[in-house]
Design a binder for these strands. Structure first.
Lengths: 243, 243
DNA sequence: CGGATCATATTTGTCAGACAAGGAGGATCA
DNA sequence: TGATCCTCCTTGTCTGACAAATATGATCCG
């Protein structure tokens, strides 16, 4: 029924995909039993070790679970697919766009300064290194829905500060310098906006904010941005799967 | 140097942990080479298939990557390992304990009621099904740091409401009925406590709250709890990796 | 006939050994 | 000196086997 699979990716990766497809196609529901290892090896014409590696991956994904001596079963998480979880790294611009917002960036301030100790540690900066501090407001129909502060090591940006349009995507800018962030370590909390920010920008009605503090890393694992993003509580909620 | 590993969990799961430990202990940095499969099988006294399954898991985690013919290497993400990410499902009791809090539960109300349409949908309830509504406050040294509302399908709990000590762990209770939650679909936002809750419980100084709304599922994929957890903003912040 | 017990089959967990395929580095040869 | 080839190392895949947990049905006994 199914031809054996052969292309350039490793067998195991192909297998994982094929088995996930199988679950979808056959509309297997949580609790349903998967074919046994023997049946799957016969079906895909592959060896048991390769199959087991693929199944382990699906198990780690939470798509299936296993009971020794009984078999493998479709697990619950297959039913709770989150459309755009917060755990997927994306730029703020992409994120707001996904929420249906079409925001305009307003640069509040741009400056070069010496990092404090905590920041220098986050960005792995040497003694005497400097950072660019970018403070922005994101407006939806002139209504502020995000307040953002970004810190970028000065050494990354070779251009002069005032030759750059800072109202665009920071990710796109870093991409030009081959420093596109790929992943981040983030922490989430609920706060009120700092009082001075409220005063300076007339944000008395901003209300509670979801603060995401994250250190972003490029593909090589070097930190390239430290960001504080205050999301207006009434406008944002992030989804994720826990298991 | 290392004794072989034996306990009740499957070998592969133990192995994954041991190898992750190895990376930490030896302070391997992104790009560093891992021991070869041959060295690891010798070290841990396990077979190659078992080892490979474990390595595949770490690869999927993004902790390591592999190059055919060259070896396995530590990847960038290993640098941003989050100790206890929010994406790991655990009970509120476990979570607060991890934060160093030793909270006392105070039951505000317990009742049986008819779910509204949204709730019935979240819990996959049939027409006419009823739910238990549990409203609690978590106190740290008499200071409220969480306000929680849980909804559980009435059909799960066979005992009479007032025969149960609701101040304990809800997870432990559900476990007794073989309905232990294993995973959840959650959403995170920043809010103020509802006004009536503030008034009734004297919570004027609670400040902004991190609200986690989640539907919890048992191993079979059936929803068993719908929970609203308001975390006092000044006391909680959750970490996660994004990639 | 009913229920408990036991033997057997099924299914996953683990192991051993082998060969294929890709990559790296040194030896060889022009 | 430089290019080529060979060999070794490492990961990818396969085969076959046995152990351990579970399910099933037969058997035995009251």
């Amino acid at each position: 029924m199914d031809e054996p699979l052969r292309d350039m990716r490793t067998l195991v990766i192909q297998l994982r995909e094929r088995i996930a497809d199988l679950i979808r196609e056959q509309a297997l529901r949580p609790g349903d039993k998967l074919p046994t290892e023997a049946q799957l090896t016969a079906r895909f014409k592959i060896s048991r070790p390769a199959l087991r590696e693929a199944l382990k991956l699906l198990e780690q994904d939470g798509l299936i679970y296993v009971e020794h001596g009984r078999g493998r079963f479709v697990s619950a998480i297959s039913a709770i697919q989150i459309d755009r979880p917060i755990t997927v790294f994306e730029s703020v611009t992409e994120m707001t766009g996904h929420y249906g917002y079409n925001t305009v960036n307003k640069v509040l301030s741009i400056s070069e300064e010496a990092p404090d100790a905590a920041l220098a540690k986050q960005l792995h900066l040497d003694e005497g290194a400097r950072v660019i501090r970018l403070e922005r407001l994101r407006l939806e129909h002139d209504d502020p829905i995000m307040y953002c502060v970004d810190y970028v090591p000065r050494s990354i940006i070779t251009a002069r500060l005032y030759d750059i349009d800072w109202s665009g995507s920071l990710l796109a800018l870093l991409d030009q310098y081959k420093q596109r962030p790929r992943m981040s370590a983030a922490s989430v909390s609920a706060v009120m906006l700092p009082q001075d920010v409220v005063d300076r920008n007339d944000l008395r009605n901003f209300g509670p904010a979801l603060l995401i503090t994250e250190t972003c890393f490029n593909a090589a694992g070097t930190p390239v941005v430290y960001a504080l993003d205050y999301h207006k509580g009434s406008h944002f909620s992030f989804s994720l799967a826990r298991r």
